[in-house]
Write a protein that binds this DNA or RNA. Sequence first.
DNA 1: GGGGCGGATGTAAACGTTTTCACGGCCAAA
DNA 2: TTTGGCCGTGAAAACGTTTACATCCGCCCC
Lengths: 340, 340
Amino acid sequence: MSRVLNDSAPVNETTRTRVEDAVRSLRYVPHGAARSLITRRTSTFGVILPDLYGEFFSEVIRGLDEAAREHGYHLLVSSAHSDLAEVESAMRAMRGRVDGLAIMSPDLIAGGAAIKGPENLPIVLVNCDIKHSALDSVSVDNVGGAQSIVAHLISHGHRRIAIINGPERNCDARERLRGYRAALQDAGLAVAAELELPGTFTEDSGYDAARSLLKVRKPATAIFAANDSMAIGAIAALTEAGLAVPEDVAVAGFDDIPIGRYLTPSLSSVSVPASDIGSRAIACLVHATEHKNHHVRRHELVATQLAIRNTCGPHDYPRRQGAAASRSSLNAPTPIEAVP
Amino acid sequence: MSRVLNDSAPVNETTRTRVEDAVRSLRYVPHGAARSLITRRTSTFGVILPDLYGEFFSEVIRGLDEAAREHGYHLLVSSAHSDLAEVESAMRAMRGRVDGLAIMSPDLIAGGAAIKGPENLPIVLVNCDIKHSALDSVSVDNVGGAQSIVAHLISHGHRRIAIINGPERNCDARERLRGYRAALQDAGLAVAAELELPGTFTEDSGYDAARSLLKVRKPATAIFAANDSMAIGAIAALTEAGLAVPEDVAVAGFDDIPIGRYLTPSLSSVSVPASDIGSRAIACLVHATEHKNHHVRRHELVATQLAIRNTCGPHDYPRRQGAAASRSSLNAPTPIEAVP
DNA sequence: GGGGCGGATGTAAACGTTTTCACGGCCAAA
DNA sequence: TTTGGCCGTGAAAACGTTTACATCCGCCCC
């Protein structure tokens, strides 16, 4: 009987034990779908992912997962959705199976604008471009992160700083470009078109971009790559061309992938707390379901941190903390510096 | 009407369009739970994960996810389950929400033996210890992989080869130890207790193990670490002690984590096709559901590959393929060699 | 012209829960 | 003694689908 299982009503002690015995002997387990049908809640949040999720997304998923478990929810994942139609089809498939939806789709053009829940299903946009007023959102502070690290390069004395950009339609890439430009303007430096190179977030595209950058008349003394993979490719191209990093050209990336600290020289980058993104997305959904989706929408921006290492030059920049005593360069993660 | 949506019966063209119009105008979306209830299928597989899933597990999940999508299934994940009680509680929570279950729990002691589905729910054990006859299983060929790479070290002329082992209760660790011993015995070498060091799969434990190994009277000339993290820690301890890798001591790991190829010297290891594990687990579940769980059980072993790089010594071992022309050491993954 | 048949559609049962309602005791208060 | 409320329990409705069944109509064939 449901009353003993859920403590939903007072029940006599003798019948309680009688029911419990029966439950045990029949190996009875309540049926989730049937319960969801009448209860109108599933204790499950849906997650819609882009095609290829690498390190970053799997960290986000971990954050989602941990926070979901903490709040007593499960996760129903559905991946490989690059365009709006696919996302909508996935949303349709999840109707009646989830209490809320986290959509991660950084490549979606104006994705948030067109997304519409079937009824009043709570939806949180994770790392999507549009701050859609009807939907919650959690995003990385790409602008701030890019701006900080470019400012850091500027503080090293660099005046000609190039950027290797990400895909045009990717919102992260667009925002990092904005941050780059903002940092230049803050320092009174001109934005030069020949120093803004296209890229596709792949190592190869970083390599190609750096090579084409070497052909510019007045070469840059520093390169900001919009992600770490491209930074790694760029460094390969530079060293191949006989240039030393960071002595001849400084390099900085974005994402702070784990590999970065093991490279020689170790890669300066912008660290984004990926799992925090996931947990904050879940927090949004929990809050939304508690208010039956009648709540004021939130647009959260999670702060990045500078991960200053060796590819951006000697450490004349004031450090927040001294270098930790370490056993070897191999397993000595560079201390991370908070963005001011 | 369900007939037009599912094409389950012939329906007149005019009524079909009439229904379709209504569906569109009412923004109607079928309710998953209700459908599952009557259909007795959910198009969803459950995945039960251990607490902290790193690189390896997130790759497995990707494999699961891709294969599931390919077969028209979703994934319901539930993590943080280190003991049997927790796993069973998770299984209970999934009753009626999934058509099958993939359980990954390498730390479970004899886990498979006690696991029992509520009804006849298809279950596949992923990387668990016991080959339980009533349940399908997909596991890494830890024994074969360890045996291969230790044999490789032996082929380099090493006679005293140490192992840094993983946690006692971890089945991967136990099997890798077995493979290590088998390789030694195949080569007529004695198994020495002082060369088998405990570890916990962490970088620190590898560091500690290598340090204690240096105190042995007749030190080893090669170290096989049961995973890459410990290998990295061990290398740190060796270089700190003034020993050169691989000249003084050769080192090999297991897992082939991406960082390995970026280290200097790059880390020799055993590559396990993590995402294949996931897709084969899904294949098992699909096969099981198609046969209503009345099928002969499978116990699949996925083969590993040797990833021979620089920490195990000069390449006098016959290579299957020549070194690929590469731009730089940074982005030149060492070609992977198939296990014979 | 009637019976049978097949295509199209309406109807009702079923899935396994939760929740609401009603009922029967029982005790306290009037 | 009657009335009202409370506790415990059984019965029934509801959730939103699918499926099996029944109905109806038009048609062909005997």
